[in-house]
Write a protein that binds this DNA or RNA. Structure first.
Lengths: 114, 114
DNA sequence: TGCATATATAGGCATATGCTTATATTATTA
DNA sequence: TAATAATATAAGCATATGCCTATATATGCA
């Protein structure tokens, strides 16, 4: 098995990124969902620029992948990233956050993103 | 197998703590070594109060165990902590930092701590 | 007891972080 | 083209963080 060496300074950078409840939850969600900014705004009850800044940080280190579809921008996990196995090993230990998306569907707030 | 649920807010707190290169390295070292403050000062080339503050944060959440031996205070991983399996899964992916301790031994700086 | 050594705490400071509002950009549609 | 909608960026602000120096506390030993 190929084992990439994870330098400690790179690791601490990733951990710092995940050491924020909003970003950690986003990573957990995009691990098996594709979500748009407006959904995160709804889920976290925070301003749209705040979410934009969080996803930007994740995008800057390449943990998420951005895809524009019309007026929406969708984010998903970039599983090709060198550090993704590390991230995955962490978020795998977290409880599913899918109920947050389900709640949006029930409210009909997720319509825009399908 | 018993599986403790790791709440996402607790997880982000732990990750934030580990999201600092000094603290992450300390955790990696104390995972299989018992170290005193003066060693960390030597290793990280940072002031003694700075190290004291870092280990205090780790101690406050119970990740490290403090033990006074004479005038020295030794720190080791508190593997009884509920979050330790989570921490362990992370630091297990990091390269050994033992060469930092070896270097101290070569310099004779680690004498005090045996 | 007095001095040296190791560590902890207090206080100050520069920078980082996360949020907000205001505004710019990009795409959709009438 | 103009209006609307989604997102990004800019700027400002309050708080957090990590470091330092100065000082307090605790222990060992002459």
């Amino acid at each position: 098995m190929l084992r990439t060496t994870l330098e400690i300074d790179h690791a601490s950078t990733i951990l710092k990124l995940l050491g924020d409840q909003t970003r950690l939850t986003i990573m957990k969600l995009v691990d098996d969902h594709t979500c748009c900014v407006c959904e995160f705004v709804e889920i976290f009850q925070v301003s749209q620029p705040s979410i934009s800044q969080h996803v930007r940080k994740l995008k800057d280190v390449g943990l998420v992948h951005e895809e524009r579809k019309g007026q929406w921008v969708f984010y998903s996990a970039n599983k090709e990233n060198v550090y993704y196995p590390f991230v995955q090993s962490i978020i795998d230990q977290l409880p599913s956050q899918d109920q947050k998306l389900k709640k949006l569907e029930e409210q009909g707030t997720r319509i825009s993103c399908n």
